[in-house]
C-alpha cells in the first residue's frame, strides 16, 4: 500500500487541464457531475469508465452526444462492478499496462441493486476503483427512496404526511460494510471538501486491486436546494456530522475529520425541501442517530 506522502498531490493548480466529462446533460449544479469530473481529472487519460444506469450515464451518452472524453461504457444496473472487473481483466489479458478502471455508480446502484456484484469485485480484489456518488435517492427515475436515503427524507416513494415522516430507515452503513471485506483502500468523501476527495481518488488510483470511495454528492433537483449551493450543502452535511470523512486502509479505520463541535443539524436540514416537513421529534431522532454513530467511530477509529 502506498502511503499518502509517496504520491504526488493533485490539486486545482497542477491537475490536468483536460476535461473528461464535458457537455453532459446533468441538471445545473449537479453534485454528481462534480464527483465524476474531478475523479476523472485525477485518474487521467488512461482510464476506462463504467457507469450503471443512473444519472451520470443517462446524461453522458445520448447518441450522438458523447460527454465522456475518454473511454466509457454504460453497464446494466446491477452489473457495474462486474463489467468493470471484466474490463480490467480483459485489458490485462491483452497485455495492457498502466491504466485504471473506474466505476461511478449512484447510491441505489451501489447499496441496493449493484451490491452483490460490488461485493464479488472486492472479494476477487479486481483492479477497479469503485466510486459511489451518493445523492441519497434514485434521482434519475424521479427521487425514490434507496438504501442510502436517510431517515426523514421525503421522496416520491416515501411521501411525508400525517402518518409517516417520509423515510423510516437510516442510511445503510455502506462504508463499514465495504471495509468489512478487508478491502485494500476505502474512503468516504464529500464534494463539499473537494481537495480531500481529490487526495482520496489519488490514493485509490495508486492502490493495486479493489478500492472504494463513497462520495457525498448533492442533487439540487432532488433535494430542493438552489443550484448555486451544491458545494456548500455538501460541506454543511459534513460540518453537522451527518456525513463523516474517513478512510480504511491496512485493516484500520481512520477518522479524517473530528470536529470539537458540530454545526447545526436543523440549519442543514431546513435548507432543503426534502426535509422541510420534519418535526422537532424527527430531528431529535436524526441527532441521536448521529451521536451514536460518532461515539462509536470516536471510540474505535481514533
Amino acid at each position: 500500500m502506498n502511503k499518502v506522502l509517496d504520491i504526488p498531490r493533485v490539486n486545482a493548480k497542477n491537475m490536468t487541464d483536460k476535461e473528461f466529462f464535458y457537455g453532459h446533460k446533468a441538471c445545473a449544479g449537479c453534485g454528481g457531475s462534480i464527483a465524476v469530473r474531478l475523479a476523472l481529472k485525477v485518474l487521467g487519460e488512461r482510464t476506462y469508465t463504467a457507469l450503471p444506469a443512473g444519472c451520470m450515464s443517462a446524461v453522458g451518452f445520448i447518441f450522438p452526444q458523447m460527454a465522456f472524453n475518454s473511454n466509457a461504457i454504460i453497464t446494466t444496473f446491477p452489473g457495474a462492478a462486474s463489467m468493470a472487473s471484466g474490463i480490467a481483466m480483459g485489458a490485462k489479458a491483452l497485455g495492457q499496462k498502466d491504466f485504471k478502471t473506474v466505476v461511478f455508480a449512484g447510491d441505489g446502484g451501489t447499496a441496493d441493486i449493484g451490491f452483490q456484484a460490488l461485493s464479488g469485485m472486492i472479494d476477487r480484489n479486481d483492479d477497479v476503483l469503485y466510486i459511489c456518488y451518493d445523492n441519497e435517492a434514485y434521482m434519475n427515475t424521479g427521487i425514490q427512496k434507496s438504501g442510502l436515503t436517510p431517515y426523514g427524507t421525503q421522496t416520491t416513494t416515501t411521501p411525508a404526511g400525517k402518518n409517516l415522516p417520509g423515510t423510516l430507515t437510516h442510511k445503510k452503513n455502506l462504508f463499514e460494510i465495504i471495509a468489512a471485506h478487508d478491502i485494500a483502500y476505502a474512503a468516504t468523501a464529500s464534494i463539499g471538501y473537494p481537495q480531500d476527495y481529490l487526495n482520496k481518488v489519488n490514493k485509490a488510483k495508486h492502490t493495486k486491486g479493489a478500492s472504494f470511495i463513497h462520495v457525498y454528492a448533492s442533487c439540487p433537483t432532488g433535494w430542493g436546494t438552489p443550484t448555486e449551493t451544491s458545494v456548500e450543502i455538501a460541506k454543511d452535511a459534513v460540518d453537522c456530522g451527518l456525513i463523516f470523512l474517513a478512510e480504511y486502509e491496512d485493516g484500520e479505520f481512520k477518522l479524517n475529520r473530528n470536529p470539537k463541535e458540530f454545526a447545526s443539524i436543523p440549519d442543514y436540514l431546513k435548507k432543503q425541501a426534502r426535509f422541510k416537513h420534519l418535526s422537532d421529534q424527527d430531528i431529535e431522532i436524526i441527532t441521536e442517530h448521529r451521536d451514536k454513530k460518532w461515539s462509536r467511530m470516536r471510540k474505535h477509529w481514533l
Binding site: 463489467m83 472487473s85 474490463i87 480483459g90 489479458a93 452483490q116 456484484a117
Partner: peptide
C-alpha cells in the same frame, strides 16, 4: 491455458464480466 478465469458471484456478473472484457477487445 493463458486465459484469466474469473470466479464471479453470479451468472449476471458472469455475463457482465464477459461484456466488459469484450468491450476492450478480449475473447470471452
Amino acid at each position: 491455458m493463458d486465459g484469466e478465469y474469473m470466479h464471479v458471484e453470479s451468472e449476471h456478473s458472469a455475463i457482465s464480466v464477459c461484456m466488459g472484457a469484450s468491450s476492450v477487445g478480449a475473447r470471452t
